[in-house]
Design a protein around this nucleic acid. Structure first.
Length: 424
RNA sequence: AGAGGGUUGGCGGAGUGGUCGAACGCGGCGGUCUUGAAAACCGUUGUCCUUCACGGGACCGGGGGUUCGAAUCCCUCACCCUCUGCCA
């Protein structure tokens, strides 16, 4: 959520930023916010004055009763009834204004960083890095959805039977390679100084609001109506919400957390014939990294995270590129996002396996996540997160790129984790 | 799931209608003392809104109500604890 003070002080840049993000009617919405805020403050002032008067009267009445002057007290009581009615009205008006303002702000996205390129969709994204790894596919190479059948390691039909589309069953070396990937990713993160967290996979509404999945992505999350809980779409939500409503001691910064979790996404509307096999699932495994920084340091953290993720892909010997998302493709809550895409050779597609973002104060404002400055003031922190990594597409690329007549070769770093060198 | 008890500041813990934003203890911060530290002693110590400022206002789990006045009374929701039930 954007801060009103920022909108006031930096209106033009905010509007331009929203336009870059292709937010419709930016000027109009911002003017509405400012007008509502003006009204809100005026109402608050009148209410405060009224309450101040009431408080004074109440104190006076108490005094009179103590002194035994009951008739004077009664007289004063009748006077206050009018104040009471007025303050009740104002209170209602104020909370209405606050709700309206909140509603409006909740639906205004974050402002992109100046480095974010203009553009409307993925076509306008900027490729800022691509590594040197090349793939030599043998004749008759298969896409991963064929390979998993051939080696009997992932069963999509079985998943359909048990649950439905997008809930695959991992079997044999398929299950073991999953476990290997998770452990490899977690160990790497620990080595890089991340603290490991195992969060709940169900979250309440407040947590969803805190990181901005609500109200923006309500339809994308599975919901437990009975309890009003949501299945997490990413560990970002529970992990970042650990720090909701807190003032962090500066000496504990930066915070670096890593969490492995299952992720659940309805992917409503985005299911189609072009998404096959592991390319898009309703349930998948992901290791997520989260960092919390002071505003001064958050871009150091951002770049560190990008480099870290690239290091993982390099170790897995996968061809990948780093893509800076353009304004139109940028997520609702993000200031800047770099996607890491691996090349899956058999289907000849780049697959997103990680998304590293800096949210600056956008989440922190909703989360009330602050730290104390030298002069003892509280100030919003910056939150960041990234996948490190999401498993299915990494696996898809590994299978497709490393296949040969002999089978699928496991990358060196994973062999100690997997306990085998080939899927055959 | 049923019955009962509870939720107060960073923590512990008073407070059951009238200067209570809240005693007291611990912790934190500043100081005195000390070569330094500890101990002792003195002072200080919540968040948010509003105002250029003085100041004003809100917050004692969340929401609502009673009252001139609520941390204190009532309703409701959430959570925690104990016992019973169920269960990996």
């Amino acid at each position: 959520m954007l801060q009103i003070t920022r909108i006031k002080q930096d209106k033009l840049n905010v509007i331009n930023g929203l336009k870059k993000k292709r937010f419709p009617e930016a000027e109009k919405e911002i003017e509405r916010v400012l007008a509502l805020d003006q009204q809100r403050r005026e109402t608050q002032t009148s209410l405060d004055n009224l309450l101040a008067e009431s408080n004074q009267m109440a104190r006076k009445i108490g005094q009179l009763i103590k002194e035994g002057k009951s008739s004077e007290a009664e007289e004063a009581k009748t006077k206050t009834s009018d104040l009471k009615r007025q303050s009740k009205d104002l209170r209602e008006k104020l909370s209405q204004l606050e709700n309206q303002l909140n509603e409006l702000l909740l639906n205004i996205p974050n402002i992109p960083h100046p480095d974010v390129p203009q553009g409307t969709d993925a076509v306008d994204n900027e490729i800022i890095y691509q590594n040197e790894v090349k793939v030599d596919l043998t004749e008759g190479a298969l896409p991963h959805w064929e390979l998993v059948k051939k080696y009997d390691i992932i069963d999509f039909e079985l998943g359909n039977k048990i649950t439905g589309a997008g809930f695959p069953v991992y079997k044999n070396k398929g299950a073991r390679i999953q476990r290997a990937l998770v452990n490899f990713f977690l160990d790497q993160a620990l080595e890089a100084g991340y603290q490991e967290i195992q969060p709940p996979v169900l979250i309440n509404q407040e947590s969803g609001l805190g990181t901005g999945q609500l109200p923006d992505k309500e339809g994308q999350m599975y919901q437990l109506k009975e309890e009003n809980y949501y299945l997490i779409p990413t560990a970002e939500v529970p992990v970042t919400n650990i720090y909701r409503d807190s003032i962090i001691d500066k000496k504990n910064l930066p915070i670096k957390n890593v969490a492995y979790s299952l992720c659940f996404r309805r992917e409503a509307g985005s299911w189609g014939s072009h998404v096959r096999g592991l390319n898009r699932l309703h349930q998948f495994d992901k290791v997520e990294i989260v960092q919390i920084h002071t505003p001064e340091n958050s871009y150091l953290g951002f770049h560190e995270m990008c480099e870290y993720v690239k290091g993982l892909l390099q170790q897995l010997e996968l061809p990948f590129r780093e893509v800076r998302l353009c304004g139109g493709d940028l997520g609702f809550t993000s200031t800047i996002t770099h996607d890491m895409e691996v090349y899956a050779a058999a289907q000849d597609k780049w697959l997103e396996v990680s998304s590293v973002s800096n949210f600056e104060t956008y989440q922190a404002h909703r989360l009330k996540l602050r730290y104390r400055t030298e002069d003892k003031k509280t100030r919003l922190l910056h939150t960041l997160n990234g996948s490190a990594l999401a498993l299915p597409r990494v696996l898809a690329a590994l299978l497709e790129n490393n296949q040969s007549e002999k089978g699928v070769k496991i990358p060196k770093v994973l062999i100690p984790y997997a306990g085998f060198e080939w899927i055959e």
